[in-house]
């Protein structure tokens, strides 16, 4: 079984549209939407949820007012400015402390040192994850709660469940839709993957972000391909980015032209390869063929998942 992850560094370069197309072209894949704080793949693949579970990535502190003596120890030890206090006023017997759930980092230091044991420190529900059926195969996806943390842990969980699903359903590919950036959820989506495809665009921002995200894949030793979406927006920059990629030892897997059909397909909840038969679809099919070829070449070996 192999894991292919689609990332971009910069947001909005077309990751999800390309993953949706790959999903409908792949014959034996499990899909994993690892963009857990702004997931979109379900908007195209229209999943039927067959399993739904809550996710807890850590604990959160809460002061129990009835036990709190307002000693202020919690505020003293908190490094995240999550403890605020209100002076005694009318109707309020004494000074009151409160923990801001948004600022709370879940370190539990306040609860550990509270002399009155007045701080509850219990696992928090940070989101939900789902196993679904789609017309393109099984899909594992998730929804991080609003303003929640621990997205990296949720990404790891989605990948793990996707691998299990692939194993139990005898599917040989896990196709991962990643998130923008280079931080915690992206790291969680690429570590140990067999191949990364970076979707970039011919803009200075696209090039800049490609450099940082390919530094990241190199750092975690994940073999990396690139493709240039909307390549005809700026042909010179496309050539420039392809040259840059080669200098960095990244293989250019393809170019995809700019076409409003991509948006039209999205509005109809179809992948581009379902919506159109030629034009941009031909580009995406060629890209998929090139990606598959690399994925099947003996150089790309599954790290840790050889079974």
């Amino acid at each position: 079984m192999k894991e292919l992850v689609i990332i971009s560094g910069k947001g909005g370069t077309g990751k999800t549209s390309i993953v949706a197309a790959f999903a409908t072209l792949a014959e034996n894949a499990v899909l994993a939407d690892c963009d857990v704080d702004a997931a979109d793949l379900h908007l195209v693949l229209d999943p039927t949820i067959v399993k739904r579970e809550t996710f807890s990535g850590g604990s959160q502190a809460r002061i129990m007012p009835e036990r709190c003596t307002a000693c202020g120890k919690c505020a003293e030890v908190c490094r995240f400015d999550a403890v605020s206090s209100r002076e005694a006023d009318e109707g309020q017997r004494e000074k009151a402390y409160r923990i801001d759930p948004i600022a709370c980092e879940g370190c539990g230091v306040c609860a550990w040192f509270c002399p009155e044991e007045a701080i509850e420190f219990a696992p928090a529900i940070n989101g939900e994850w789902f196993v679904s059926e789609t017309r393109a195969g099984p899909m594992v996806h998730a929804k991080l709660g609003i303003a929640e943390e621990n997205s990296g842990k949720l990404v790891s969980l989605v990948r793990e469940r996707a691998r299990e699903t692939a194993k139990s359903r005898a599917r040989d590919l896990v196709l991962i839709d990643g998130s923008p950036g280079i931080g915690c959820p992206v790291i969680a989506s690429i570590t140990g993957a067999d191949l990364a495809l970076v979707v970039t665009e011919p803009t200075l921002s696209g090039r800049h972000d490609l450099e940082r995200v390919s530094d990241l894949t190199r750092h975690f030793r994940v073999e990396t391909l690139i493709c240039i979406n909307k390549w005809d927006i700026n042909e010179n920059l496309t050539l420039n980015i392809e040259a840059l990629a080669r200098r960095r030892g990244l293989k250019v897997a393809g170019r995809v032209r700019y076409d409003r059909a991509i948006t039209e397909a999205q509005i109809r909840m179809q992948s581009i390869t379902e919506y159109a038969t030629d034009g941009v679809t031909a580009d995406v099919r060629q890209l998929w063929a090139n990606v598959l070829e690399t994925l099947r070449s003996p150089n790309v070996t599954a790290t840790g998942t050889t079974n």
């Binding site: 702004a38 609003i146 303003a147 997205s151 998130s179 923008p180 950036g181």
Partner: peptide, 14 residues
Amino acid sequence: APPGTSCPVITAVL
């Protein structure tokens, strides 16, 4: 701000 809805965004817009 960065894209998304999780902690980096919150930290940026607070």
